[in-house]
Design a protein around this nucleic acid. Structure first.
Lengths: 355, 355
DNA sequence: CAAAAAAATGTGTTCGAACACGCAAATATT
DNA sequence: AATATTTGCGTGTTCGAACACATTTTTTTG
């Protein structure tokens, strides 16, 4: 029952060879007689040998350069969290030679993404962490990285294919379903629900479309035909109309609105509106624990926020690359983070949590 | 900007002493001239020296014995999860000399706890992880461990004082508040809510009382006087009455029941009842992702389960002890785990999650 | 003042894995 | 047959920290 640690030396003794030979076998460095190779392999398996990562990394002092391509946290505070997760991971991993260089782009400007990713292209990194929020612009780069075999990790937005090392983030569709459930649980009467995309180019943002689809699908499988109505609304401030004006006319046209589901982190804009118009009977569900949203969560204007664990996304993203580059561990190619339901009453534990 | 790793050797060179001297200074081993000690300390601080944990643990091959005192998973399947968290941590930490011995007691028999803890007492462990679910019986042991300076970690149930190395688990009171919120969000009409303690000796289980208190307090601060009524119910199968019979009479006496909050992992017992009686308008909220509950969560008889991350509790508990014993790191004495809200739609991500 | 004791400091080995290097035996080349 | 080349395998060093042990310096004591 005593758990015994198996070392290369132990294998070597049993196989009557030197540690150097075992090392060659385990790392497929060749230069070993076939019969010896088989004997050593067999013994290693029998003893259930697992390399000591510490000793391994201790001797390895290569430096690995990772590029992180993310939106500017100053423009959209949501992106502060992934950045701090990345920084935290870098801090922990610098001992193992991990160095991260940030390439910041503007989350409202697809061309700036292309520029940032282009720079990374030129510089030859050992790994790339990218939040590919612009679908069209991302494809070309994902394709290039795939063919040049640079390991890359996608987070926040899932663009399948192109064989990323891994994807880290949420299942957007399922988070829409979850929002549907929460809306439904809070409102059993006949009602109209609004899916609101705020300040987004939805045609180029697949994950928002998935969220909407999940929400719609929830209601088509719950409650009889015609009982619940879901409408979609694309809200953008224009020269002609502010968002408040657009919401005014929405509420005029649709009198049965009992809930609004905001597909990105901008639920606070709707909350501001509801508070100003003193509308209290409308349920409001959004995303992300950013400062502006938390204020309305605490005043209970926003009922629920779905948390994407953005800090964790950055953190695990860098770790995924390090596992590949430094520790030679394999990771699951898709890491779906939990869909955390946040309300005023459990908020504090998600804010305090380190990762 | 290039992050430089500072080694003992670097400090030694700058201070014009040998690495041995630096080592003595850093570990307060004495036998160093005062002026040299100050010089070295100063340089270590300036360079922001942080010991390389890997190298440290590599050389240290002491074995640390930890006792885990937990209820029998076979009797109450909830306890399977902490056990597997403990096992996982042991697996990861065995390289650093961590060995865990389990002491299992019966979660329905306080005397068995005393026996298990008594055995640990005799055997002299380097650290103890304990789920002190019996308040009275735990006090004596906590006190003994405190005075004999054995580091111990409490999890699941928080009994303050006695200076544990740390407590890991939830804030029971706040989880009751959260249950209140969820109940309230799902039911805006006049209603009666039941707080049900099932098969528990509540007088000896402080955390259940805290949950009830949180739930009650939520409703006293929301909604006007008399709109919501909260009643407490202690349900235990006896020779005279089954739990179903007790629920029958409860529903006869109280006609306005719109929700039931079960304070432990036995919500499935109420769910079975509701399903048999075909009661669908009653909201049901409980705790813990055990098999029996999940079935009713999926059939939407249980609306929400609050997850205590039991696997994480065991895992982090062992890690807390290892941080202290092996890595000499300091931990926060209270680690409140998030109050995860689980519903059918986001369940899968909490089941799959490793920790 | 010299010898002994105490204090201060330096040196060398260890942990487990990786890898460069070196040497011997087997095989190939002339 | 002599020499070169390949193949197979062992040895020794390295990583950073810990610690035992050795050595030097200072202080105390008879």
């Amino acid at each position: 029952m005593t758990k015994q640690i198996v070392r290369i030396k132990d294998i070597a003794e049993r196989a009557n060879v030197s540690t150097g030979t075992v090392d060659r076998v385990l790392h497929n460095r060749g230069r070993v007689a076939e019969d010896v190779r088989q004997r050593v392999t067999k013994i290693a398996e029998e003893l259930n040998y697992e390399p000591n990562l510490l000793a391994r990394t201790l001797v390895n002092n290569k430096v690995y350069h990772i590029a992180a391509i993310i939106p500017d946290p100053k423009a959209d505070s949501y992106w502060q969290a992934p950045k701090s997760g990345i920084d935290k991971a870098e801090e922990e991993l610098k001992r193992y030679g991990i160095r991260v260089t940030h390439f910041i782009y503007d989350s409202l400007d697809a061309a700036s993404f292309t520029r940032a990713a282009g720079k990374v292209e030129e510089l030859a990194f050992d790994g790339i962490l990218v939040a590919p929020i612009f679908y069209r612009e991302s494809l070309a780069f994902l394709n290039k990285w795939k063919s040049s075999k640079v390991p890359f990790v996608q987070f926040n937005t899932h663009i399948p294919a192109y064989e990323p090392l891994m994807y880290i983030g949420q299942d957007s569709y399922q988070s829409g379903v979850l929002a549907g459930k929460l809306m439904h649980y809070g409102c059993r009467e006949k009602a109209t629900f609004v899916v609101a995309h705020i300040e987004e180019d939805i045609q180029n943002s697949t994950h928002l479309i998935h969220k909407e689809q999940g929400f719609v699908d929830y209601f088509s499988s719950h409650g009889q035909e015609g009982f619940y109505t879901v409408i979609q609304k694309d809200l953008k401030a224009t020269a002609q109309h502010t968002i408040a004006q657009q919401l005014d006319s929405l509420f005029e046209e649709e009198t049965q609105i009992k809930g609004i589901f905001v597909t990105n982190s901008k639920a606070n804009i709707v909350a501001t509106y509801l508070q100003k118009r003193q509308i209290t009977h409308v349920r409001l569900i959004g995303y992300d624990l950013i400062e502006k949203n938390l204020h309305f969560l605490n005043s209970e204007t926003i009922d629920f926020l779905i948390n994407q664990n953005p800090k964790g996304q950055g953190y695990w993203g860098i770790y995924g690359l390090a596992d590949h580059l430094v520790f030679k561990k394999k990771n699951n190619p898709i890491k779906y983070l939990p869909l955390d339901i946040i309300t005023k009453e459990n908020l504090q534990y998600y804010i305090e949590a380190d990762i």
